[in-house]
Design a protein around this nucleic acid. Structure first.
Lengths: 218, 218
DNA sequence: TAATTGCATTTGGTATACCAAATTTCTGTT
DNA sequence: AACAGAAATTTGGTATACCAAATGCAATTA
């Protein structure tokens, strides 16, 4: 763990805090305070903040304190739209370019997720979910596509986390994953794209519900 | 001009140098040297380098000097593939969401490009070409999509610049743009996507030719 | 001669100091 | 009491100092 670059370590810590809500949306992130908190200097802290800004978790404001991003539904929905475009292309390419080993390995990841369901920390479960989607993108054998896709998956992490509160949703997600995996095993690009669309459309609806409930509770 | 943030100004300068080839692919960018060259300190120079790394123009290597990116054909082709995914989605959405003013404005941009052809600096012409594609993406009314799309257009700038040496290609590009614009005016998503595909497939072939010629000249 | 070891130098990473812009606090006036 | 303006403080931006890892080079050895 100590071998990772310091700014990355700091970014990891801050990211976790943001995703868990320890750092609330809209809250200021003052370089000095957070740097001294973590016993580092401002330099790597600044870099860490830029990393999170690139991921869309933090908003940089010239000559002002950066703040934790507080995206509107429209923004989240826009991000999901981009993710959809990327993931559809990834899926189709993966059907074409994945090795058999890729498929069995990703199948194993899914099995592992199933066996972990409800037994582990929700944050850790979401890590697995992310890794599953990223593994499919990686199987497209287009490194740029996989990397870009990862960036957007990560950017949506908090929104997905928050919108997954409905207890039935995890079962539905599980079924959607199985559908995607089925098409992937058959290397059927059209079907796979269709199932990915279902999955991500459902995500938009989940997020929409979440935002609707939030606004009515005010 | 002086109102822009210092790291951005530095990044602009470096970017131009990279795209024009003043800084050759593979060449090291030493923080101290380039900082003193531009009469700034290492801090904003470091930030500028990170900006260019985000754009894919520079490669960061932990504890080593960053180097100017020297992408293989496969990498460029991967980037174009991602751009295609983004631009297809943009085009379809633009057909749906663009205002009539958007369309007439973009039409005017194209007319302007036509009238400028051959009369202006190739670099300036490419700026117009970029702006044309970015304007279509912006007309999708998905800000995230437009921004991401822009990043990839910019990332391909040098490859397109280098591969546009063939003198007939500009006429072909002009025709392809007209086809895209025709579909856009008719708000026909399928046709527009088809024409965008043609355009970007042609780009891949242009780049492939360029790389083939380059390798045989060695 | 080729390889290797050890030292000197270069260079990125981090910490700190300084500055200017922005924010907050305080104070005096109406 | 409310507002305006100025002083004090906070805070991001930049410059510089220091360190450790990486690199280059030369002397030494097989």
């Amino acid at each position: 763990m100590t071998d990772k670059a310091l700014p990355d370590q700091i970014a990891d810590k801050l990211r976790r805090d943001i995703l868990k809500g320890v750092l609330a949306p809209g809250q200021q992130i003052k370089e000095r305070d957070h740097a001294t908190d973590l016993d580092v200097s401002r330099t790597p802290m600044r870099e860490a903040i830029r990393i999170l800004a690139k991921e869309g978790l933090v908003l940089l404001r010239p000559s002002r304190s950066p703040i934790v991003a507080d995206p509107s539904f429209e923004e989240i929905s826009d991000v999901i739209e981009v993710l959809t475009a990327l993931e559809l292309r990834s899926g189709a390419l993966a059907c074409q370019n994945a090795t058999d080993e890729d498929i069995t390995r990703i199948q194993a990841m899914q099995d592992h997720m199933d066996s972990c369901q409800g037994k582990i920390d929700r944050i850790d479960f979401f890590e697995l979910d992310m890794e599953f989607h990223m593994a499919i993108a990686a199987a497209s054998k287009n490194a740029v596509l996989a990397e870009t896709h990862s960036a957007f998956v990560r950017r949506l992490w908090r929104a997905r986390y928050l919108s997954a509160s409905r207890k039935d949703s995890s079962d539905r997600v599980k079924r959607q994953h199985h559908d995607i995996m089925q098409a992937f095993c058959d290397r059927d690009p059209e079907l796979m794209c269709a199932k990915i669309s279902v999955h991500l459309d459902a995500l938009i609806e989940n997020v929409r519900d979440k935002y609707a409930k939030e606004s009515e509770s005010k």
